[in-house]
Each structure stands twice: as structure tokens, then as C-alpha cells.
Design a protein around this nucleic acid. Structure first.
Lengths: 341, 341
DNA sequence: AAAATAAATACAATCGATTGTATTTTTAAA
DNA sequence: TTTAAAAATACAATCGATTGTATTTATTTT
């Protein structure tokens, strides 16, 4: 219970050798003979030695830690992405610090400050809904900490991103509704400062255009896409004298809120109104009717993003070319949109 | 882009004073005059100085960081608990490192190792399903790092815990099923090494006993309580020639798996079989029929646990008495068990 | 066996911030 | 004005690990 802080100096003293030799022995340096290494390792075990990573990182100017910032860890997409990130990072010997901005710019700012103070080697971030520019990230930029965006990104030249094709996703979702006979399709969108929501919206518009359906501004409702926003948005739609027969929501959560409300109002889904979401939350396959949605491969995106980041970290010359990898979204057809057989 | 590493020495040099004065100025020490403090702060801003927490923690032998280990962050209960932990910790000026064991003992071990190497000031943990003793935690114990268990705990004398009354929860869930007319109630349990599952099981037994229902060992199915386990368990139950009319599952996830399977088999819930879960996952209120369950106040538990831990951290004398706080579970009655009106 | 080379280890500085002690400067008292 | 006391700042060691350089020891060559 007592040997709280065994250091290499304690090992050195016990073996009557120098601490530099101990350090090299522990790091398996060729300048130390195998015999000495064995003695050191034994003694280290015996004393319960544990490397002090603070000291090590300080000296090496490298923490072997990357920071991950997501809006909220409870979202399935983000926790999958984190799983992918962790797998890749751990394999490469990196630790991961997970942080959630809870969609607040101020929290995001504070997190970045802390990560920077802790000298993380790189940052993976999916920005909050309040984030409109890279102001927050300048701290990191300034001291040369690599950043890779995944999913919710900012369009910064020279920065790597891992995205899915939100335009295509929006297009596919909308065209699917059209293919099911919908003529009057509303869209729940998120903050337009976020590329992903802008692009999903663009996809929606493009699909309408292709099928000669006129865009009706009254059918576009922007919000933060929480469940309550979905309810509110659905309410707003019903209050208008427009015969809506389809909704494409830019995320599942809002879609589910809307579904619950509409069901409560006696509206039949998909017969009266067909609904398509975005993200493929686990809940979406369970709800009744099950929700048609666009799948985002979170785990895969996390792995790719972490790999991009690690490449940049390892390349101390900073000559790595920024890369933007765009994954294909996949439409998952379920019952909430099944109007034709 | 260039001033990657501004240190107090750079500030000192720029102002032609000593770095010790800079350090004290930045820390608002009374030994430095206000005028100097102002000059230092200005220059620090100008140069974009950022404290190196690695150096600071090393010198102070205090990282102002706590580690949190949970089985998986995607579970609603755990992400709520984390939210509570973060709120409390940040208020007290502590950073939080979130880690997930993914129910694997080996991962838990590695995480603890890393947290210890990073010299966290304390650890909050909800153990994995594979964890059967405190072996993993000895590293922390040895160097005197305080540990507080929340929810999934080990019974270690002298250790603080924040729990809910799992026995009561199990009892209430089971008695509720009995009150709805169930006579033959199965139980999905988790690993019996975990106190929580043992206690939920005990509650189940106690409720049966109170109502003079004989315990049938064939109705007790242990698993890791994943969704697939719920399906398997339901299958197993149906394969037996026993007229089951109720299931108390030790978590919602397995309950939902079972529900899906049973519905697929044409069994009516709750008419044929009533089901009660445990945890109150968000999905449980949305599924049809909505799932009766036991609510665990995750956010609150997180706050309490963090407070207990911070108290122990601040008390360097180590004289803080271990405390076990048990919260009351709340039965949330929904449709999956509504057989009588 | 002496000299030359290689191998193993010791010494000392460093990473950046902090803090006890010493020194200088300022202010107050005599 | 001189001296004592207080205030402000400088010096130097420290936290634990790492690493370039110097030194010692072992091995090889002649």
C-alpha cells in the first residue's frame, strides 16, 4: 500500500546502477546488456514500478494521446465512431481522450483548451451545432496539432476530413419517397452552417428538381433536430393547409419525434405520411413502423479518421497532403416509407 | 503557426524577469505585485502562452484528472452517469478521461494501467461483466488512488459505492408482474459474479416467495444480456413445455431482444407473456408495446459518485470514511406488462 | 602483453512549471 | 539620513524520464 511512487531512480539505487541505464533497459535499448535488462525488469516488477507518463511525455514532447470531440457520446453514430477510433489508436499505441461538447460552442472551446494544455498529439472532431467557424480550433492550429474532422466538418483548406456523401444521402432519401408516390415532401433540416445539413438539404432539393416537383419553402423546417424539435416541426407542418405526404428528416431522432406525434394525431405512417430519417440509430429498427433511414458507417469512419490523423502525427515534416475521404451512404428501406409494393 | 511552445521562460525573457516570478504571477500569487501580474498576463496573451499541464502535473504530483471506466458509453444509463460525473468534475476544476471496457476484463486491465501511468487523481468505475475480483484494481490501490464504484460494483471493504437498490428493483419488477396476474415468471439474469445481477435475482426470488410461487430453476436463464442473448433466452423458454406468462429481464436490452423474437413467433405481449426490463433505456418507451422497466437515475448517480471521489481526493490524509449510497429504484409501468386495468 | 576497438555504463543536461531560500528593492520607522 | 522591516524578485533545486557525451570495462587485434 505504501510504495506509491517507484521511479527509475529507486530501481537504480536498488541495483546500484545509474538511472539512465535503467531507463534504457526499460526501453529495451541496445546500449544495455541483456543481463542488466533482466535485472532491471525483475526489480521493476518487484517494486511495482510504473512509468510516469507525465514525465515521459514532457521529456519526449509527445503524449501519445489523441483527443476526440463529439457532440454527444450517447448517439449511436458517435459511439460507433469512437469504437473505431479507439481500435485504431490502441493498435498504434495511442491513448484516447473522449470529450463531448453537448452541442455547445463554449464547451467545445473549453475542451480544446484542455486538450491543448494536455499536449495531445492530435484531435479528431465532429463539431457542435453552434460551431460556425474554425475560431475555436486556432489554438490547435497555432501549435501545429493535427486535426481531422469526421462527419460534421468545417470546410478548411488543408484539413483532412472523413465524411459521408450527405448530398447523395439526401438525394437518395428524397428520391425514395418520390418513388413511393409522395408528391408533397417536407424536410426537417439542422443548422445551415453545418455542411452536413446544408448538403442533405441540397440533395433533397436536387431530387425534387429531377422529378419536377416544385420546392415549397414552407415545407422546410430548421431546428436542432432533437426529439422535441421533431414533434414541434410535425405540429407546425400539420398546422399548414398543405397535404403533406412525406417527410425527409435530416436525422432519425427528429424523425422519431415526429412519428410519435403524428401517430398520436391519428395519422397513418406510411399510408398518410411516409417518413425517412438519417443516421440509422438502433431505435429506428425497433420503432413501429420501423424507420427508413440512411446508414452512416460510424465504426468505419472512426477507423479511417484515426488512421488519417495518425499519419499526420507521425509525419513530423508536416508535408502530409490533406485528404478528404467521402463514404457512400446506404439507404435502408423499412416500413415507415413502404407505400408501394 | 510557429510559436508552438511558448513557456514561462519565454515570457520571463521577454519581460526581463525571472521565470519563477512569471509562474507566481500566472498563479496569482501574493508575492508578485499587481503591476507585474498585469505585464505578465498581457505578454502571455500576446505570445499565446498555454500552460503545459504535463509539466505542471509532474511538479505538483497531481494531474487534476479523474478516470471513468464504464462497460460501454453507448448505454443510456452510462452516458447519463458520465454527464453527471463531468458536470461535477468540471465545476471542481477536474478533467475527465472516459474509457470503455466493452465488458472485457483485459481491456479493463489495460485501461487501469494507462490511467495509473497517467497519474489520474482518482477513478470512477462500473466494472465489466468479466470482472470477478479486485485484482485489476490493485495497481490503483497500491499507489493510493481513490476508487469509487457506481452501479456495477465489487464488495470491497473500505471502498465507497453509489448503487441503486437492485434487490428492491428486482422485487418490485417481479411483484408487479404478479400483480398483473402472472403465475409463471421467468428471469433473464446476468453473470452472478456481479452484485447487481445477484441482487436483482434475489429480489425476484423474494417476490416469488412472498406470493407463494415456487421457484423453477428452468425459468432462470443467465447470459450477458445482449440483445441476441434476449432472443436466445426467449427461444430457450419457448422450447420448454412450461406455460410462461411473464418475464423479468435484468436489463432492457435483453428484454427487447426477447420481445422482438416473441412478437415474431406470434406471441402477444402482454396478453400471453408480460415483460419487465431494467434500466429504462430510451428505446424502451418507444418500442411497441412500450416496455415496463426500472429506472436508474444515471445522472444523479454520476454526480454523487463524482462528489464522493472528489472528497476522497481532496482529503490527502486518507481518513475519509468509505460510504455506500443506495438509491431507490423506480418502477415505470408501461404497456408490456399491462394485463389488468 | 600492449594497443586498439567495441561494449557497457555513468554523468549531466533537459523537458516546463513550481517553490523554498536568498537577495535586492522599497517602504516605514527611528 | 540611517536602520529595520516588509515587499518584490531572483536563484536554484525539484518532479521523473530521457539522451548526448564522457568514462570505464571488456574484447579483439597485433
Amino acid at each position: 500500500m505504501e510504495n506509491s511512487k517507484v521511479t527509475i531512480h529507486d530501481i537504480a539505487k536498488a541495483l546500484n546502477i545509474d538511472s539512465s541505464t535503467v531507463s534504457r533497459a526499460l526501453n529495451n535499448n541496445s546500449r544495455v546488456t541483456q543481463k542488466t535488462k533482466n535485472r532491471v525488469n525483475e526489480k521493476a516488477n518487484e517494486l511495482g514500478y510504473q512509468r510516469n507518463l507525465l514525465a515521459s511525455s514532457l521529456r519526449n514532447n509527445k503524449s501519445n494521446t489523441i483527443g476526440v470531440i463529439v457532440p454527444r457520446i450517447s448517439r449511436h453514430f458517435f459511439s460507433s465512431a469512437i469504437a473505431g477510433i479507439e481500435e485504431t489508436a490502441y493498435e498504434a499505441g495511442y491513448n484516447v481522450i473522449i470529450c463531448q461538447s453537448l452541442e455547445q460552442l463554449s464547451r467545445e472551446q473549453k475542451i480544446i483548451q484542455t486538450l491543448s494544455e494536455n499536449r495531445v498529439d492530435g484531435v479528431l472532431i465532429s463539431i457542435s451545432m453552434e460551431t460556425k467557424d474554425n475560431h475555436n480550433l486556432l489554438i490547435l492550429k497555432k501549435n501545429g496539432t493535427p486535426i481531422v474532422f469526421f462527419d460534421r466538418h468545417l470546410d478548411i483548406p488543408g484539413n483532412s476530413n472523413v465524411l459521408i456523401d450527405d448530398f447523395q444521402g439526401g438525394f437518395d432519401a428524397t428520391e425514395h419517397l418520390i418513388s413511393q408516390g409522395c408528391k408533397c415532401i417536407a424536410h426537417f433540416s439542422g443548422p445551415q452552417e453545418l455542411e452536413i445539413y446544408k448538403n442533405r438539404f441540397e440533395g433533397y432539393k436536387s431530387a425534387l428538381e429531377k422529378h419536377n416537383i416544385e420546392l415549397n419553402e414552407n415545407l422546410i423546417i430548421s431546428s436542432k433536430l432533437m426529439e422535441s424539435d421533431g414533434i414541434e416541426s410535425a405540429k407546425k407542418l400539420l398546422s399548414q393547409p398543405i397535404p403533406i405526404d412525406g417527410i425527409f428528416s435530416a436525422n432519425d431522432v427528429a424523425a422519431i419525434g415526429a412519428m410519435q406525434y403524428l401517430k398520436g394525431e391519428g395519422i397513418k405512417i406510411p399510408e398518410d405520411i411516409a417518413i425517412v430519417g438519417f443516421s440509422n440509430e438502433p431505435i429506428s429498427s425497433v420503432i413501429e413502423p420501423s424507420l427508413t433511414t440512411i446508414d452512416q458507417p460510424g465504426f468505419e469512419m472512426g477507423k479511417i479518421a484515426a488512421n488519417l490523423l495518425l499519419t499526420q502525427i507521425k509525419d513530423k515534416s508536416g508535408s502530409t497532403v490533406a485528404e478528404t475521404i467521402v463514404l457512400k451512404p446506404i439507404l435502408i428501406k423499412r416500413n415507415s416509407s413502404k407505400r408501394l409494393i
